[in-house]
Structures are given as C-alpha cells and as structure tokens.
Design a protein around this nucleic acid. Sequence first.
RNA 1: GCACCCGUGGCUCAAUUGGAUAGAGCUCUGGAUUUCGGCUCCAGCGGUUGCAGGUUCGAAUCCUGCCGGGUGUACCA
Length: 541
Amino acid sequence: MKLLSKILYETLNNLNYPNSEIIIEIPKNNNFGDYSTNLALILSKKIKKNPINIAKDITNHIQSLSKKELKKISIAGPGFINFTFSDNFYYRNLLNVIDNPKYGKIEQKKSKTALVEFVSANPTGPLTVGHGRGAVLGDTISNILEWNGYEVVREYYFNNAGKQMRVLGESVASRYEQIYNKESKFPDYGYQGEYIKDIAKLIATKYNDNFLNDDQNQIFKKSAENFVFQDIKKTLKKIKIKFDSFFNEDDLYTSGAIKKILSNLKRKNIIYEKDGATWFNAKSINREQDKVLVKSSGEPTYRLPDVAYHKDKFNRKFDLIVDIFGADHSDTYPDVMALIKSLDCDIDKMKVIIHQFVTILENGEKVKMSTRKANFITLEELCDEVGEDVLRYFFIMRGANTHLNFDIGLAKNESDENPVFYLQYAYARICNILKKSTEFEYRLNEFDDLKLLSSNVEKEILRKIQQFPDLITQIGQVLEPQILANYLQSLASLFHKFYANNKVISENEELSFARLKLICGIKIVLKNGLDILGINAPKKM
RNA sequence: GCACCCGUGGCUCAAUUGGAUAGAGCUCUGGAUUUCGGCUCCAGCGGUUGCAGGUUCGAAUCCUGCCGGGUGUACCA
C-alpha cells in the first residue's frame, strides 16, 4: 500500500520519530478498517513511550494533512492504527484497472534479472509426480518474478555422464539382447520400466542385430538419453513449461571450471586431504560432518560440480538466483551454500525452496512409488488423467513446505469440491454476462460514476481488487504461490456471492454500467491471476 | 542415533510471516432459486492450534523438552 506507507513515512519524519520499517496489514476483521499498522507498538519499544500516545500523535498529524482518499482513522486495542479509505478512492482504482489489462504487473525501466533452476531431473526415466510439483512451482515462481519486473531465465541442470546413466545404458542393452533371445543378465539395479523395452525395440528396428555382441556400445546409453529427454520435454510441454536453458554438468569438466573451483577452495584453506580423498572441512562452519569432494579414485562426488555450477550462476551476474529442490536435497544444499559463500559469492542473492513430497491418493489409498522399480504413475499419466489446469493448480495450492496429498478422485471431480472449476466457472460466468451486454459496450465510456456500487459485497469486491498489486509484490518477495491461489478463491467466492443476489444487467441503466465495470475489473484480476498460475481462463466451460 | 520438514474442527487445508474474536471448503442438518449458466448462493453444527513449559503489550507462528508422522543420513546422484 504505497500511498499509506508514504503518508506514514512523512509523518514519522515530521514528528521526529525514529525511522522504522512500516508494516501495513489488512485486518482479518473488516470492522477494523481497510488497512492497519502496528507502527505505534513497534515505536513504543524503541523510544519507551506509551503506544497509545504515539498512535494519537500519528493520527492527529495525518488528520491535519486532510488527505481526501482517507475516510477514517482510528486507534484500537493496544495501539493499532486503522485506516478506512473513501469510496471514491476505490472507484478510481476500478476505472484504472479497466484501462490497464495488465493490472498488477510491475513494469520496470531497468529490469532486474533472475535465474530459476528447477526440475533438473537426470534423463534416466520419465518425470514423476514428485518432479511435477517442483516443475509447476518453478514455473509459477518464474511467472511471479516476471510480474515483479524481473527478466527470468528458466534453467534445467542435468548430468548425462554419471553412474545412473551407465546403469540405464546397461538396462537397455540387456533388453535389446532379450529381443534376440540372447541369454542376458539384467543388471541388479537396472531400470525396470516398460520404456526401457521401448528404447531397445527402437534400436532393434533401426539397426537390427548389429549391436548384439557389443553391449558396451555407446548407442544404448545415447539412445536412452535421447529418448528419455524427448519424453521429458513432451511432458513439460503438456503442462505448459518451457525452459530457456539446459545446463549440462559435463560442461563444467570440459571448461575446467571444476579444477578451478578446487584450486580456489584449496587457497581458501577449507578443504584438506585424507585417505587419498579431498574433504570439505564442514565441521569448521558448524556442519554435522566433513564431506568428501573428490574420492580417492580421483572422481569428484556430486557436491563439487554442484558448487561449480552455482559459481557459474553467480558469474552470470543475476540479481536473484532461485533453486527449487525436493526434500531429498534438504541435507545437501547447505554444504553447497557454505562452499559458495567461501568463494566470495553473495548468497543473500540466492533463495532455495525445498518442497516436500507428494502423496498420490487413489480411492483413499496411498500409491507408493519408485522410479527404478517402475511402479509409479508418471507425471504425464497424471496429467492425461486430470488435465493440465487441475494438475498445475493442485501442485501450488499448498505451501511448498507441506506434505501434499494429491487426491486423484477429487482432481477429476468436475464439481464444487474442485477449486479449479470454481475459479474457472466464475470467469466463464463473467464472460457470459459481458457477451449479453454487447449492446451496452459502445456506450460504456459515457458513465464513469460508480457511486451506485454501494452494497457490502460490491465494496468488498472493490477492496479485494485494490489489494491485487500489493499481493503480487508480497508473493514476489516470499515466493509462495499458494497465497495467490487463496486470493483468487476468495475473489471468485465474492463474485459468486454478488452474482447470486444481484442482476448485473437491468432496466436501471446507470446501475448496469456500474456493475458491468465491476465485473470487468474482476475479470481482469482473475485473468491475470490465472495467467500467473499458468491456468486457462475459459470463456465457456 | 543424528539432521531437516510437518502436526490446526470428523476430512483436506488457510491464517497477510509475531497481531485484534483462529478462517475456508468437504461431510452433516436446514433453507434459497420460474433470472445474465443450479459446476451457484445462505444459515447452523463443529476448536484448550499434538502435549508441557518459556520469551512479551500480544504466540498456531519464536525458544526448550517430550509425543506422533514424513524425508534424508555413502569416497551414490
């Protein structure tokens, strides 16, 4: 709430109160006004003065400014200051929304840049439901950053050289041999999914039995990688995710970045040699255990390229770096952060978002999953089952840090229990009314007096709409999309409530125009919110 | 064992990141609607926020200790 914080800052200045961070909130109870601040309570701690007296000083001063936007200021409870804005203020805001289809988007002259890394699954198999949560979170957070004036690079980091990929190649080779009835031992930890057989078949149709006695041939691994990556990209496309960049871990070796990191770490004295391996002295910075960076075999562990990769991100000079990981990484990223920091990177620029795992519920039963054993539901299957809108919404409607139950039955339910349909239905309804009103449209500009929007619901809607830009800013800072989902639900609910009790188009022309403007405003906000979530806003359902 | 995350009405979750009387939806009970889409709306039932302490004007939120669930804990990625 820029207007209010400006007024408050001025007031602090004029009254010679110490500068303080100003926190403006929307009270839960709307008897307390449109906005409130605990400023007096915070100041009272700092200057040891009764908060009520401070609040009185502040309100007296603001009243003396006689701002026409403010209707009412009051002091409540232990020293909260509550503000109510004039109806006119909200009417003007609505007119502004209608003129500005990108209402809520922050346009910056000089845009900041952000890198968001997500999914980053190695090409060993189809994306799972767990990847899906990270994928949708990452894409939605990217959208939110774009709405906050960032230029965003969506990046996918992968490794096609490790042990897992070797096992993948061996699994394919074995299936290939089985096609020709050759005695073939399937690797102990091999990938058992059907897609391995599909890849083997592809090789067989293309090259026949050319590689039958050559199970070490790179063709197996290469084909598998291509096949799986195609599949992953296809799935991502289905859920409307597009990456700007794919970063191959291998490049860090060929470019010499790994070696450079190692020598820098050595110079900083934070690694040491023991038993032929290179260790990170993690205990010295209060981590649980020292960790191996280079094995005695000379092969680095995954931590080292991770550090090199993040160093590379910092070298690319982004203003903000966001990592999105599943809970299985929660133990490893602090090491990477610590190492990065020791290499003089400003880790305040980096935000790590850890999401908990997804539990799929079908008929109330948990579905257990493992990629290697292949008894999983793939992300693509889930998407085909419930549709991309529902899929995306379900993955972000809960905070990343909670364990998510994905109830397939509920997701497929096209009724009131399903929050996606509730939202889209509100949008479709508005579009339908606007369609009916086309004969009014060309005269819409004749009326810009909105004073007939005077009922409680209408005013609540006006306030809700006014809050949208602040909401975008807030989410841009905390990076928690479920806040937007909740907001849209409550806006949709207000609209449905309004709709049930009021006719938009009636004989009263002036009222009709005012209400048409109101629903135009709702429509724009719903559309923008849905766009950020990557969900369709259908005109018809 | 240790580390991280979670615990909120019967169920699934919110709670503006420390704010005022803890809110929604589902279920259940009872109502509305010849209307611009009945995929909608209204009312009621339902709570000692896992338990016990502590911090302060103020705690679901922060600290400590238990209890219960999840994840991780390799010279695997």
